[in-house]
Design a protein around this nucleic acid. Sequence first.
DNA 1: TTTTCTGCAAACGATTTGCATACAC
DNA 2: GTGTATGCAAATCGTTTGCAGAAAA
Lengths: 154, 154
Amino acid sequence: MSENHQLFGTEDLRGKLSEHGYKNTPQRKEILQIFVDHSDYHHMSAEDIYKILRENKSEIGLATVYRSLDLLSELGILVQVDFGDGCTRYELNNTDPKAHRHHHLICIKCKKVIEFEEDLLDELEEDIAEKSGFQILNHEVKFFGYCSECRAEM
Amino acid sequence: MSENHQLFGTEDLRGKLSEHGYKNTPQRKEILQIFVDHSDYHHMSAEDIYKILRENKSEIGLATVYRSLDLLSELGILVQVDFGDGCTRYELNNTDPKAHRHHHLICIKCKKVIEFEEDLLDELEEDIAEKSGFQILNHEVKFFGYCSECRAEM
DNA sequence: TTTTCTGCAAACGATTTGCATACAC
DNA sequence: GTGTATGCAAATCGTTTGCAGAAAA
């Protein structure tokens, strides 16, 4: 349970928040906790989170969900993922360099999204960081094309 | 004018359209032409296109712009780019393997987007195509982090 | 002629915002 | 206490859709 994630804990959150002058509210704690508890789910949308909160009998409003997701992303605790399906999704930013990075093949015909894993970009990241002064926390790679089914129909 | 782009021409468009059972309409031609004429602009949104059409005294409606951009993307003539700023952008899919691929550094604090160029992924693409049966037409790489200015303020 | 396409306006859905209240510090 | 955060509802904005007329094939 504990060896494969240094997932974000309550204390880490408190620290990051106060470090940036934000308040440590129960809503922010609870929303982050959902990502920790559902770390198998990959990329949840604001509505997904809101639905889970409802199931948990939580009173957190949808606007707060949006505001918290924004904030947690800005702090680098979550990362945004976008499949072009019209809603932003979020996932825990696993900062472990050994962690799987999963990326996406997106079919431009049927819009199917296929996940795959790779770890090729670390070297490139270092290079960019050095040249641009950019501190990279995460990367996202998408390949666009036709999936095998759509190719068969062409 | 002609040596550095095998940009899409009227005949190419006609061919791709009829090949897929779509009609060759002046609206589609005109919208594609805007991308050819503004190939320096990189990633234009539906509204950008609509604005240019208006300046050109064209009567094409916004809904048609959206429908055409969708179609041209599905045909692999355009590709979608998404910066997480709430609107989808499009650009010509330069199929020349020697062409610059430009990718993006996105600051999670100030949302600034910085372009950079690289050509590293061709090998990876071949590998994926082989294993998955996916025909890759384009790829998109985004790095998320803090830009040098935001880092300075932290 | 037949089917697809267009333009318009209305509908939609994700996200944001204003504001009064509640809460973290 | 003081300023930030929350919850609600209304507003916003990009995008999609229904439909009747127009135009490709």
